[in-house]
């Protein structure tokens, strides 16, 4: 008769709108230009990275400044799969996820010895070490990097069908494929994180976030929880990295392990949008893209502005833009709070 539920009207509406948006997004390449598809690809991949970082920092309390390690290793694993093993790039993306997961194990082993801020720089050191080691890998271009070979890029799974369907050239077909994969990835990652937060693991995460000692006293294994979150985020970040570099088809250690592109931007997106919510990164990535388009001609002023905005947000609205919206309106698009529903109790509250 009584049951626990996280369902709310706003949540149901979100689900319907999300499905509609994804369905509308699928045929988009037929009606828009290649530039728009590339922009959307950028937005979707940044959103994926932001959701993953938010899972780590916002829910898991693991403030990593080294996520570029997983983007980079995922991208390089994809290139290795294509160049050394002759895999189709689409399948090689999966290799990126595996590589991210494998790198996460020693990384967690080292970084979990460090607390708080030291954890942050510790992950950064490991990302640097990974970059320097990969730069020694001469078969994949060493420090200068390499490109996907011609025969691989022209045979990417599904691009022939896309070329026939939309009547576009090879490079544009690769963009469309990458866009679809990014759409798929963002749905899986966002949906997955939402599901995770509603599950037992999510309840445990919320408990640890609110009071780590109290959580442990009721039997939450905080150490195992951290490992789980870190490994999940690393594997998915590796997949995203592999996808990003399948689209560019060119890689170098400096680009693949760039702290600015894969960590600084991502942190700003999450902070500006609102850390610790699923809505936050979505709001953040929209603001980020608008700022990027508006300030594109001003070079490094753009990054400087982002940095200053992040400081201001942290000082005056630590819950980000979504926090402001949600505290005023009480709106939660992705409700995770458990409520007891059922018939009203007579004489009760």
């Amino acid at each position: 008769m009584y049951k626990l539920t996280t369902r709310t009207r706003a949540g149901t509406t979100t689900a319907i709108v999300a499905v509609a948006l994804v369905l509308a997004g699928l045929p988009l390449p037929a009606v828009t230009s290649r530039g728009v598809i590339q922009d959307l690809f950028f937005i979707l991949t940044m959103l994926t990275l932001a959701q993953l970082w938010n899972l780590l920092a916002g829910y898991g309390g693991l403030v990593s400044v080294g996520q570029q390690a997983f983007v980079g290793i995922g991208a390089y694993a994809m290139f290795a799969g294509v160049i050394l093993a002759g895999w189709n790039p689409v399948w090689a993306i999966l290799l990126g996820g595996v590589a991210g997961l494998l790198l996460a194990i020693p990384t967690a082993f080292f970084a979990f010895r460090l607390q708080g801020a030291y954890f942050a720089i510790g992950t950064w050191v490991i990302a640097e070490v990974t970059r320097l080691l990969i730069a020694q890998w001469k078969t994949l271009g060493g420090g200068t990097g390499t490109s996907l070979p011609r025969e691989a890029t022209s045979n990417i799974l599904g691009t022939d069908a896309i070329r026939a369907l939309f009547g576009v050239r090879e490079a544009a077909a690769r963009d469309i494929l990458a866009y679809w994969l990014a759409l798929l990835l963002v749905v899986i990652v966002t949906g997955g994180i939402y599901w995770l937060l509603k599950s037992r693991l999510g309840l445990a995460l919320a408990a640890v976030r609110d009071n780590s000692e109290a959580a442990r006293s009721v039997g939450v294994d905080t150490g195992r929880l951290k490992w789980a979150v870190f490994l999940i985020a690393a594997a998915a970040t590796g997949l995203t990295g592999a996808l990003i570099f399948m689209q560019t088809a060119r890689i170098s250690p400096d680009a693949a392990f760039a702290v600015t592109d894969w960590t600084a931007y991502v942190i700003f997106i999450v902070v500006i949008g609102g850390i610790g919510t699923i809505e936050g990164p979505i709001v953040g990535v929209i603001v980020f893209f608008i700022l990027r388009s508006a300030l594109a001609d001003y070079g490094s002023w753009y990054l400087m502005t982002l940095g200053v905005i992040a400081i201001i947000v942290m000082l005056f609205a630590p819950k980000g833009l979504w926090g402001l919206i949600s505290s005023r309106s009480g709106l939660h698009l992705f409700p995770v709070r458990r409520r007891l529903t059922g018939p009203k109790i007579e004489g009760g509250i």
């Binding site: 801020a117 942190i267 700003f268 902070v271 400087m304 940095g307 992040a310």
Partner: peptide, 13 residues
Amino acid sequence: LLVTFGLSVALQN
């Protein structure tokens, strides 16, 4: 941590 990270990026640029 996030404020000093923002400061780092702002200062650098």
